[in-house]
């Protein structure tokens, strides 16, 4: 055998070594309060994937304020999937780099939102400041905890829920802006994400009321005890629809498109919906929703499309640089 023939075994060995070292790994870049949800869900999906395909799978999670997380993906964070707080953040990933198609929201049922939530109030036990509805949050001497809408998806839902309430009650956008301005005057500190905001209220004992995701408030009760906190349902809130999407460019490059798609589809399965409900997210599937009806009180909910003309418009009007929130917060 001529020596040059050894070239091919060497190259083959190289390739074989590379193949042996390969393992499938997904990165789910999510927003702040979903840590517990995806710990449970990932465990279930890994078992499901192994059972159906025989393949081993590792899933990594990354959490932070939804807007901040979207910026991370835009800047190169190699997310196979994103599970963020609001559609505007995934739209931003499309707009800055076209890493997924513009109509990403049409690829999965319910506009790619496998679970929903809403915005409620978390108060200390006994409700010392007598918080009953949004009006109580603008009273002098009431300290309100909510995160920064510039970085947190949850904060944007909070802001819009307050705006919708004021507009419904007082009739005009001017009145709504004045109301929200008054509300932010009572906010002593802005965290970058919803989990940080919960920490501020629950663990740092700051504030009289936290405007919170329903799932986050329920989790706080579970984790820290019903003897310490109470949930107050406002008379009106907003239907929060956290969306999910495969980041096509990353998944294609990593060869994970199939498993990433299956991962998100599994959120709509019975098991996925059960896990969402157990983690205090309102399930989409009617039979699972019925099973957990007692967990989630009914209340009047406005929608982002009906009330604000969709996320794109709401984002531009309220949260873009130079938008109404900037005006409100600069005048605080």
């Amino acid at each position: 055998m001529k020596l040059r023939h050894l070239l091919f075994p060497i190259i083959a060995l190289t390739l074989a070594t590379g193949a042996a070292a390969k393992s499938t790994e997904l990165l789910n870049v999510s927003y702040d309060p979903t840590r517990e949800l995806y710990v449970d869900f990932n465990k279930a999906f890994i078992a499901h994937w192994k059972a159906t395909t025989g393949e081993d799978l590792t899933i990594k999670q990354s959490h932070g304020g939804s807007g901040k997380q979207a910026r991370g993906v835009i800047d190169g964070l190699q997310a196979d999937v994103v599970t963020l707080a609001l559609a505007a953040d995934i739209d931003a990933i499309y707009e800055h780099g076209k890493q997924l198609p513009q109509d990403w929201q049409k690829r999965l049922p319910d506009n790619s939102t496998p679970y929903t939530s809403t915005i409620v109030f978390l108060v200390r036990k006994g409700n010392p400041k007598g918080i009953k509805d949004w009006d109580d949050l603008v009273k002098p001497g009431v300290s309100v905890i909510t995160p920064n809408p510039k970085t947190s998806g949850g904060a944007r839902w909070n802001y819009l829920a307050a705006w919708a309430y004021a507009k419904h009650k007082q009739g005009t956008d001017q009145a709504a802006q004045a109301f929200v301005t008054a509300l932010y005057k009572n906010v002593p500190v802005l965290d970058s994400g919803a989990r940080g905001s919960t920490t501020t209220f629950v663990q740092r004992e700051i504030g009289d009321v936290a405007i919170s995701w329903e799932n986050e408030a329920m989790l706080a009760l579970k984790e820290f005890g019903r003897e310490k906190f109470e949930i107050i349902m406002p008379s009106l809130s907003i239907l929060a629809e956290p969306p999910v999407a495969v980041i096509d460019r990353v998944a294609k490059k990593k060869g994970t498109t199939a498993v990433a798609t299956a991962y998100l589809e599994y959120l709509y399965s019975d098991e996925g919906q059960e896990i969402a409900a157990r983690n205090f997210y309102r399930p989409r599937k009617p039979e699972i929703a019925a099973k957990y009806a007692s967990t989630f009180p009914k209340l009047e909910l406005v929608t982002i499309d009906g009330e604000f003309g969709g996320w794109a418009k709401a984002q531009k009007t309220h949260f873009a640089d130079g938008g109404i929130f900037d005006e409100i917060y600069q005048n605080k």
């Binding site: 002593p188 500190v189 740092r204 700051i206």
Partner: peptide
Amino acid sequence: EQQLKVLARKIEIKEETAAAAP
């Protein structure tokens, strides 16, 4: 006490933000 806690939390958030910065 609340004002003190708010100040402490603001410092904490500032540190967290700095630590998390890429």
